[in-house]
Design a protein around this nucleic acid. Structure first.
Length: 768
DNA sequence: CTAACATGTTCAGCC
DNA sequence: AACATGTTAG
């Protein structure tokens, strides 16, 4: 390699394979990037290299990421590396990219350009209608299951008539009938579900002219997380790459964890077959984790058959051994995790920690324990903001404004707040919808004909008028103005205010938050339909904030992230590996990859835990230890595990009825001191290359650490704290719930009695 | 028509 | 244990 190029700022601090990956710009390239191997750095430098060194126009580069958040971060990082504006750079998720294309070219699809995007709950209610119409019993045809099968077809780019050969049994043939009618329903609504976005776009790109236009335009393609692409995404990429073959895919077959939504691991395994001239580069040096953590990950994943094979290595030291803790039940497990977090906090007040679990329901017990200990945390995922009832209600109005064909939204909007319209009236309205017409037109026809009476007639008149007025005033009001206007004119806000309950108050707050989201999007220049797209395509992973000290999330959500300290809870059979997944070999291999992902999130210290007893769906269950514990390398755990009457040790293929070795491992103090020294080393070497690198700040004086319950802003005051409120006078905190902005105190006031007060609004002051 | 209550179902992961 | 759906009383 010539001397002068290695001096290039875009190549600084890169290892040889990383450099090669950055500089390889023409022709297909497969980058096999192991966990923590500096993948993101390579991708961003490569894009910058294309622009700065190859003179590529930013608008000729298309990069696909897995989350919107990752796309945003990538664009920011590229912007810092290059001297030209990057606004024209296309960095987005597959779904956002497809939405953008369909809004532009969509008059050629069955739903036109002004479609709405159906979320899973919209899909489900449409499917229920379909099943009812076809007289298919929901007992036999679980709506969710039927949608899953349809989704599988769509992910393989098969429309109903094309799936006939695949539908061999009578059950699947009936599902195909439902599929046909379901698509018809979507067309009538002018709606796409998530899969349609990919499917329709892929169809568009089958066209030569489209390939010509977009294939020319996007001279350089880059696909991240290639191991997680499904057939539709794969074909889409093939269409776009056909002209230039300048396709760079980055992936890691060991981190493929989305098989259940159609991801096909063969896409990455077969890349060399698709592009025989492809160059393959392996990034195997890990800049993230200690040797112990890496050893554990490698040993576990070696049990999988479907691999290309990589060997991760690190220059970091051995580090701390992995700690496993067996607890009596779920509550004890959560409390143990809390105590370990507190130990770590005492030592380094804002060290970043993540608690990871297999499924969202496992977060509850963790949350309870954290609240009990007054530890602030951020829960990622679970019930999403945009899935809350009040937000969905408001959205139904906005969606109806954007697309009056959306009958699902009509139904929702018309009965929230209630307008005296029940099933009977609703059926009448739907019967009155003209061919290719909207529900609002249907109502107008009935009103004119005098077929509606009483309260329903009065309210429906206002309701229809609301939408005519909205159409007229939308542009003058602006996005946020329109949202606020809708909130008032619909009577929705009034309804909540009339309720006067604490719950209703919370809902109003959520709607206010929604309003500020709208204002933010307005300032970005988004129009209503674009705002709605963004809302619907928002993912859990998008709300990850790496500056949060303590995060709770699923392992899926944690992919691509890293934390100094990681807990993986629920290490039991049936929980992890999950009950359904462990039934097939492929399922089990995917669970193992998931465990691999979990392990490799940790930089310095990995804690694993399990529980002997756990409440699952209300009933107490006895658990067996996860088989993955057994797959850890010998000596990875400090002690053998005694579970029930049996004894069990890492690195052994089977249960062994041996005597447990006594003694406890390192004390908390020495354990944490060693983690500290790890970080000192990390800081000293300050390597580039880890994904979303965040180094912990310098430690604080011991005197500050030992002080109990510091009045940290944003942290809850303990029970018994005396406070002063401008409205109610003096009082004492008797309880606290929620956290962050939702932190709410229950306070016993000297005069006013007991009140619940939201900390953010209460203007409370601590006394004394 | 609506709200409250009773019963049945789910807890796998997500764009 | 939480949620969705179905039933019943007002």
């Amino acid at each position: 390699m010539p001397e002068d190029t290695t001096d290039h700022p875009l190549l600084q601090n890169l290892n040889p394979p990383q450099m090669e990956a950055v500089m390889h710009t023409e022709g297909p390239l497969l980058i096999l990037a192991g966990a923590g191997s500096g993948k993101t750095t390579v991708i961003t430098r490569r894009i910058a290299w294309l622009i700065e060194e190859k003179g590529a126009h930013p608008g000729s580069i298309l990069a696909m990421t897995f989350t919107n958040k990752a796309a945003e971060e990538m664009r920011d990082r590229v912007a810092q590396l290059v001297s030209v504006p990057v606004a024209q750079l296309w960095v987005s998720t597959f779904h956002s990219f497809c939405t953008r294309i369909l809004r532009r070219e969509g008059e050629r699809t069955p739903v036109g350009r002004d479609f709405v995007i159906f979320d899973p709950s919209d899909q489900k209610s449409l499917m229920k209608q379909v099943l009812a119409e076809l007289k298919m019993s929901e007992k036999q045809f679980h709506p969710r299951r039927v949608l899953e099968v349809i989704s599988d077809f769509k992910n393989r780019c098969l429309l109903p008539e094309e799936a006939v050969e695949e539908a061999l049994d009578p059950w699947t043939r009936k599902v195909l009938d439902a599929y046909t009618l379901y698509q018809k329903g979507l067309r009538n609504h002018r709606a796409c579900d998530f899969d349609d976005l990919l499917l329709y776009t892929e169809r568009l790109f089958r066209d030569d002219a489209m390939q010509q236009i977009y294939g020319d335009r996007f001279r350089y393609l880059l696909v991240d997380e290639y191991q997680d692409t499904n057939r539709a995404q794969y074909l889409l990429v093939q269409h776009l790459a056909r002209r230039h073959h300048n396709l760079c895919v980055v992936g890691d077959e060991d981190q493929s964890i989305y098989g259940w939504r159609g991801a096909d691991i063969r896409n990455i395994l077969d890349f060399q077959r698709d592009f025989p001239e492809a160059v393959q580069i392996k990034l195997e040096q890990n800049y993230r984790s200690t040797q112990s953590i890496l050893d554990a990950a490698s040993t576990v994943i070696a049990n999988n058959a479907q691999r290309l094979g990589k060997t991760l290595w690190t220059e970091r030291g051995v580090g701390e051994p992995i700690t496993f803790r067996l607890n009596d039940d779920g509550r004890a497990e959560a409390e143990w995790v809390v105590s370990k977090i507190q130990d770590a906090r005492r030592f380094d007040r804002d060290i970043k920690i993540a608690v990871l679990y297999r499924a969202n329901w496992q977060s509850r017990q963790m949350e309870e324990a954290l609240r009990g200990a007054n530890l602030p945390y951020k829960l990622v995922g679970g019930t999403k903001f945009y899935e809350r009832q009040e937000v969905k209600d408001l959205l139904s109005y906005l969606r109806l404004i954007a697309n009056p064909y959306d009958l699902q939204s009509f139904r929702r909007a018309v009965s929230s707040p209630t307008r005296g319209v029940g099933p009977t009236t609703l059926a009448k309205i739907e019967g009155a919808i003209p061919e290719n017409g909207t529900a609002l037109e249907g109502v107008a026809i009935l009103l004119k004909a005098g077929e509606l009476k009483g309260r329903a007639a009065r309210e429906l008149h206002r309701f229809v008028e609301l939408f005519y007025r909205a159409a007229n005033e939308a542009s003058a009001l602006g996005l946020a103005g329109l949202v606020r206007w809708t909130l008032h004119e619909s009577g929705y806000l009034q309804m909540l205010e009339d309720e006067g309950t604490l719950e209703a108050e919370g809902r109003v707050r959520n709607l206010e938050e929604f309003l500020s989201a709208a204002a933010e999007c307005e300032s970005l220049g988004l129009r209503l339909s674009e705002f709605l797209d963004r809302v619907t395509l928002a993912a859990d992973a998008d709300q990850v904030d790496q500056s949060i000290e303590l995060s709770l999330m699923t392992i899926h959500c944690a992919k691509g992230l890293e934390f100094p300290i990681v807990f993986v809870v629920g290490m039991e059979e049936e929980v992890f590996p999950n009950r359904q997944a462990r039934e097939t070999d492929e399922g089990l291999e995917e669970e193992r990859r998931l465990f691999y992902v979990a392990i490799t999130r940790a930089k310095a210290k990995l804690y694993l835990s399990g529980a002997r007893r756990r409440r699952i769906m209300g009933t107490e269950m006895l658990g067996m230890p996860s088989r993955f514990l057994r797959e850890l390398p010998e000596g990875a755990l400090e002690h053998p595990i005694r579970w029930g009457t049996e004894l069990y040790q890492a690195g052994q293929g089977a249960w062994t009825p041996e005597r447990a070795r006594g003694g406890s491992g390192a004390s908390v103090a020495t354990e944490l001191t060693r983690i500290r020294s790890f970080f000192d080393k990390v800081r000293a070497t300050a390597q580039v290359g880890s994904e979303r690198e965040t180094l912990p700040p310098a430690s604080m004086p011991a005197s500050e650490l030992s002080a109990p319950s510091l009045p940290v802003p944003g942290e809850a005051w303990p029970k018994g704290t005396r406070i002063q409120s401008p409205r109610f006078g003096r009082g004492v905190i008797t309880a606290a719930t929620g956290s962050g902005e939702g932190l709410t105190y229950t306070i016993r006031f000297a005069e006013a009695g007991e009140k619940r007060i939201v900390a953010r609004f209460g203007m409370l002051e601590r006394e004394g």
